[in-house]
């Protein structure tokens, strides 16, 4: 769809300034683009390429490496339902089928109201709380089908203000004052880190250091 809007472009420049090399900012910038449009648009990638001084192909390479960056529009809320072992044993598959039936969509599709996309995911590292689901990457634990219905109706009723839209992961909006930025010199200039320099060389066979 579009390039970053003016406010986001300003924020993008602030994010870029946090890194010793502009292109290191690509991942937070991709989050920003996704937050703006709901997905990472081609034009947004072209804009990011200009902002960090790389070729668009390099932005595309970074973007497509990560599942969580969407290159096509998705629902406002992504429901990641786990069907890996622990969840499957405790009803993950059933939960997925229930979700498909309730929302009338298959994994990858967007519901008619534009609110939901279901994804069938592998382990999301909450096996002790199985079966589980993420809504825009925020967890819902030990979910029954009724609990699922409740989540959906709460979202529809606008009661879930705790969930960010489009799944943006928060850190892009941190405002760190310039004097508190850490480690911003480039690796070439940084020299040997203290923890490394302080290590004793390994003794050789004769036992000398």
């Amino acid at each position: 769809m579009s390039r970053l809007n003016t406010a986001n472009e300003t924020l993008a420049k602030e994010i870029i300034a946090r890194y010793p090399r502009p292109k290191s900012a690509l991942i937070p910038l991709l989050h920003l683009a996704q937050e703006q449009d709901g997905y990472v648009a081609d034009d947004a990638m072209l804009h990011l390429a200009e902002l960090v001084g790389v070729e668009p192909a390099e932005v595309l390479g970074t973007c497509t490496f990560y599942e969580m960056f969407k290159r096509e529009p998705v629902g406002k809320y992504i429901l990641n339902i786990c069907t890996n072992l622990s969840c499957q044993l405790t009803g993950g598959e059933e939960l997925l089928h229930h979700a498909e039936k309730t929302l009338g969509i298959r994994p990858g599709d967007i519901s008619d109201d534009g609110l939901f996309t279901i994804e069938d995911v592998e382990c999301i590292a909450a096996c002790t709380e199985a079966p589980c689901m993420q809504v825009n990457y925020r967890y819902e634990y030990r979910l029954s089908t009724d609990d699922f219905d409740q989540v959906i109706s709460d979202i529809r009723a606008g009661k879930r203000k705790d969930l960010p839209e489009h799944g943006t992961l928060g850190l892009v909006r941190q405002h760190i004052p310039a004097d508190r930025l850490a480690g911003i010199e480039s690796p070439e200039e940084a020299g040997t880190p203290d923890w490394f320099a302080s290590r004793q060389p390994a003794p050789d066979e004769s036992g000398k250091a």
Binding site: D42, L46, V54, E55, A57, L60, T64
Partner: peptide, 18 residues
């Protein structure tokens, strides 16, 4: 001229342009 790049991941990895 990095106009070609690895796109996607794992089994889906391909070389391509923007």
């Amino acid at each position: 001229d990095p106009l070609i790049h690895f796109i996607d991941r794992g089994n889906e990895t391909q070389v391509n342009t923007f």
